[in-house]
């Protein structure tokens, strides 16, 4: 449906929308700008927007004085590790629910989702104690396990909604063509569902990357991902604006880029298909 819209009307809306959009985005932009300032310029009054001495000293300082790379790597391992492990467990489960629905399927799915509603404080104490007694505290393995479990319902759910869009006749055709279950999953379902699997991976990596309850409570120095690393700036160190900005920019930039690619999947994944 294309319709002529008066230019003035369009201009008004454009100005309003852009003003609000820029206001919302401003803190991120400000952080980005500040990360290239010296500490002195960062707290200058009046604030400096563009005409300051652009330099990388804050980034250098963060990399020299802290173990930034280690925490970054922890974030990568934990978010990708938990998501990939989750996918390996969820693909077969979602196949079963999407293509071999039984009377209980809906209930199982709903029950899986309901575990996602469990507030973390309801289970944090036992998990903390179990981890302490098994040596999983402050390890990447421990966090991979926990984040995999808290995101598993979303992974199963998203895959299920993607699989459900694949016509069952195609899998039946594969069966008629002599494919056993393994071949059916490997040669037909997985390649067909690849876009959906990739979206699921993307969204859940983002969620795991930004998770800030378990990562803060189950790690200390060794396995701390970026969420916990940044939290250490809450002390007076946070008053060094340039360094805080540099560390923050490095922590959010990769995920911001991934996030912009995953807008559509975000809605699907976080509303459990209730909004399309």
């Amino acid at each position: 449906m294309a319709r002529a819209v008066s230019t003035r009307r369009k201009a008004t809306f454009t100005v309003a929308a852009w003003a609000i959009a820029l206001a919302i985005f401003f803190p991120i932009l400000w952080t980005f700008l500040t990360s290239f300032k010296t500490e002195g310029d960062a707290i200058a009054s009046p604030p400096m927007f563009v005409f300051f001495d652009w330099n990388l000293s804050a980034y250098e300082a963060v990399n020299q004085r802290t173990n930034y790379l280690k925490h970054f790597w922890n974030s990568v391992v934990i978010s990708f590790g938990s998501t990939i492990l989750g996918l390996v467990i969820a693909v077969p489960a979602a196949w079963a629910m999407a293509f071999v629905p039984a009377k209980q399927t809906k209930n199982v799915l709903m029950w899986m989702l309901s575990t996602k509603m469990l507030p973390p404080v309801g289970v944090v104490i036992p998990i903390f104690l179990i981890f302490r007694n098994t040596g999983l505290l402050d390890t990447r393995t421990g966090l991979v396990i926990v984040l995999m479990l808290i995101n598993l319902p979303i992974i199963v759910w998203m895959l299920f909604t993607y699989f459900r869009e694949i016509p069952g006749e195609i899998l039946e055709a594969a069966r008629m063509d002599g494919a056993d279950l393994r071949s059916e999953l490997l040669y037909v379902l997985t390649p067909m569902a690849m876009p959906g699997i990739a979206s699921t991976l993307l969204l859940n990596v983002i969620l795991a990357w930004n998770e800030a309850f378990w990562t803060l409570n189950l790690t200390a120095a060794k396995a701390a991902p970026l969420t916990a690393f940044i939290a250490s700036f809450s002390s007076p160190e946070g008053l060094f604006f340039a360094k805080l900005s540099a560390a923050s920019t490095m922590a959010i930039a990769p995920i911001l880029v991934l996030g912009w690619f995953s807008q559509k999947q975000l809605v699907r994944g976080l509303t459990f298909g209730a909004v399309k």
């Binding site: 016509p167 006749e169 195609i170 055709a173 069966r175 008629m176 056993d180």
Partner: peptide, 15 residues
């Protein structure tokens, strides 16, 4: 897969 029959589906069900 073991019956040795071929099937043509309504939707064609091509991969």
């Amino acid at each position: 897969s073991k019956r040795g029959l071929s099937m043509v589906f309504q939707s064609y069900a091509l991969y």
